[in-house]
């Protein structure tokens, strides 16, 4: 297996009136290509800050984040923008899609951003959306789709350009239970199938049944890593 992402001793601290706050405190882990990992923890545990750092949206105070062996901690802003475009796929909690682009155009946008949009890319985008059950919705605008359908379009957009790492921030937050399971299951399948490294931040432990590993954070620290299937299923069942 190839290491897609390596996080080494990452610290992110903020200054507040009461002094320094460590939102991420000396966190280290690695994710291999084809591995789907959940980052869980209570509110304020630092998981969203960790995700922002992995997405090159936030610089760590110290430590290293290597994507395909390249450290993004020392990159310029322009390099980070290029990295987000080329190496990272991203889905958010909500407001995921560009409202004036159709489902197909939203997916193709990643190819256009990467100057890789051509006839083959257009076909591939449509196929991926069809694979996600949206074959009839290709020309629908986001407002004409349900929350689950929008999340699936966002997943397609996050994968279409073959990024090294796919990040998902609470992808099921605005979905009902049935839709949430469907979305995460599809997401996991595509991560494995396309051999990408996937990291999902979630507070809904039930979703962990579809991941290969669970990283649990508390107070900015990585406190536990669940690797065995039994442990993960127990966690998902809330036992």
């Amino acid at each position: 297996m190839t290491l897609a992402l390596e996080v080494k001793n990452v610290i992110k601290s903020f200054q507040s009136d009461s002094g320094e706050i460590r939102a991420v405190d000396d966190v280290s882990f690695a994710v291999e290509a084809g591995e789907f990992v959940a980052l869980v923890g209570p509110s304020g545990s630092g998981k969203t800050t960790m995700l922002s750092i992995l997405a090159a949206l936030l610089s760590p105070t110290s430590g290293q984040i290597l994507i395909d062996g390249v450290d993004l901690a020392n990159m310029s802003e322009a390099e980070r923008v290029a990295l987000r475009r080329e190496k990272i796929g991203f889905t958010f909690q909500s407001n995921n899609l560009i409202p004036y682009l159709t489902a197909l155009e939203n997916v193709q946008l990643m190819l256009r951003l990467n100057q890789r949009f051509d006839r083959a890319g257009a076909v591939r985008s449509a196929e991926l959306l069809s694979r996600l059950g949206l074959g009839e919705r290709l020309n629908n605008l986001p407002a004409q789709m349900s929350g689950g359908q929008q999340q699936r379009v966002a997943i397609a957009r996050a994968l279409i350009h073959n990024p090294t790492v796919v990040l998902a921030d609470e992808p099921t937050a605005s979905l009902d239970t049935e839709r949430a399971f469907q979305v995460v299951q599809t997401f996991a399948a595509l991560i494995h199938e396309n051999n990408r490294a996937g990291i999902m931040v979630t507070h809904d432990l039930r979703m962990c049944q579809y991941v290969d590993r669970v990283l649990q954070m508390r107070d900015g620290k990585l406190v536990k890593i669940f690797t065995s299937r039994e442990e993960i299923l127990q966690l998902a069942k809330g036992e």
Partner: peptide, 13 residues
């Protein structure tokens, strides 16, 4: 604002 945020997050300069 959120829409522009998405554009920038996914790599639009």
């Amino acid at each position: 604002v959120p829409q522009i945020g998405v554009l920038k997050a996914i790599g639009a300069d």
